[in-house]
Amino acid sequence: MSVPKRKYLPQWLVHAFLWCALYGLIVYPFLSETRSIPPHIIIKLVMAAVLFYFNYYYLVPNLLLKDKIKIYIGISIALLLVVGYGAHNIFPPEGPKNLGPMVEYMKKRRGSRIPFLFSLQPFVTFGVPYIFAIMLRVYTELQKNENLRKTVEKEKVQSELQFLKTQLNPHFLFNSLNTIYSLSVKKSPDTSEAIINLSELMRYMIYEADKDTVPLNKEIEYIKSYVALQRLRLANSENVFLKISGDDTGKIIPSLLFISFIENAFKYGTDYDGKTSVKISLMIRENFIQLYVVNKIGKHKPKSESSGVGLQNVKNRLNFLYPNSHELEINDDGATYEVNLILNL
């Protein structure tokens, strides 16, 4: 089951939108009045683009993002002052007369303060793209780091799941071989049936369990073969029950998702005298699947540390595969062990 990827706008599209918006705001007044764009405007826009990408590709990644903040601020202020002042003096504007009636009105009202406003224009022209370069580059780096974090996290979980599966295979194999061995020693007529069940288990693990998801009916057949093999191993299987209800047509689930709970029930539901009490119920509905497993804890059968690790692995797997769409309740009162798992489809 794969994690849905968040879609982001391509970087070239973001840059194109930024420059279209900036250039449009500056040249629109001239185009709307059918006037030619002054050469100094075009030159300053080109200078703004050069300053933008110098900041975007060099200053931000090499200074700001490497925690050289004071150096970055000092260079940025000096750069904006030099470029802004130089552009204003080398490529001076034609004057307020070409900038519309509103500026003419302000000139009459405020007199000599208007040229001062024009002296700030280059700093706005260069400063706004400069700030956008900072915001865009920082956002891009954060996005890249977040994608990398998710990729690493996903690969880690996938490796943990694969490691869990490789742990399950030999464990089942050894248990099953021990079962067949005990039957053969007793010259039981059930030996051939046990071998068939084991072959079904191994066929599923080899050809199906390595997939991310499997049809639910195949997982059910695997569970049936496992329970049948356990029944043959037990001296008394009268208290072993497996009930499956509902329609499994068209439903898929992650492979080997339920077997850890069932295996745990047989492992700790059997005491040294061979007495076993395990009840398994798998209820399939349109929108959910419910697994209910309960077993009596066998006498003199303390839990090992490996049981806790295995259970934690299953919990981690459920949290990854069914985030906020599953319910797992485990009750242990010392006499019985109860698992109730609901998967929302």
Rank of each mutant, 00 (worst) to 15 (best):
E329A: 03
D248T: 04
L65Q: 01
R231D: 08
L117I: 14
L79C: 05
T276H: 11
N169Y: 14
L168D: 04
N55C: 00
S112L: 07
F174W: 10
P129Q: 13
V82H: 03
P93G: 06
F126N: 06
S2H: 15
G127D: 08
L229K: 11
P254K: 01
L18G: 06
Y222C: 09
W12T: 14
Y57G: 07
V138G: 01
H171G: 10
P10Y: 07
E155M: 11
V83C: 00
L65H: 01
T179L: 10
V82R: 02
I297M: 08
N324S: 14
V339Y: 14
S182H: 01
N55I: 02
G127V: 13
G111N: 13
K186D: 05
K150T: 10
F123S: 01
I69H: 02
L321M: 12
K44V: 04
I90S: 06
F172N: 03
D332A: 00
I77Y: 04
I244T: 02
S182A: 05
H40C: 06
I41A: 00
R317D: 09
I43T: 07
K156P: 01
S159I: 07
K251W: 03
I253Q: 00
K187V: 03
L64D: 00
H171Q: 14
K251E: 04
S176W: 03
I289C: 02
D67L: 11
R231F: 04
A209T: 03
P38G: 00
H88R: 05
S76Y: 02
S2W: 14
H300A: 13
I71H: 10
N178C: 05
Y204N: 03
E94K: 07
G24D: 01
F174N: 15
G100V: 03
K275C: 12
R203Q: 07
L257F: 00
T249A: 13
K315C: 07
S112V: 13
L256W: 03
I262S: 06
I252R: 10
I131M: 13
L216Q: 03
L142N: 08
V60P: 01
N98G: 15
N344E: 12
T34K: 13
T249C: 06
A78R: 08
L242D: 01
S176E: 03
S32P: 02
L173H: 11
V185T: 06
L9T: 12
P29M: 13
I37C: 01
V103T: 05
H40T: 10
Q121G: 09
V227E: 14
S225N: 15
S245W: 03
K144M: 12
A209Q: 06
R6V: 14
M102V: 12
S112H: 13
N340W: 01
P4Q: 02
N145D: 14
P4M: 04
G334K: 09
L311I: 12
F320M: 15
M202Q: 06
G111M: 11
I252C: 07
L161G: 06
R110I: 09
K107H: 11
S260A: 09
P189M: 11
A133L: 05
P115E: 07
S260I: 07
S112I: 13
I253G: 01
L343V: 10
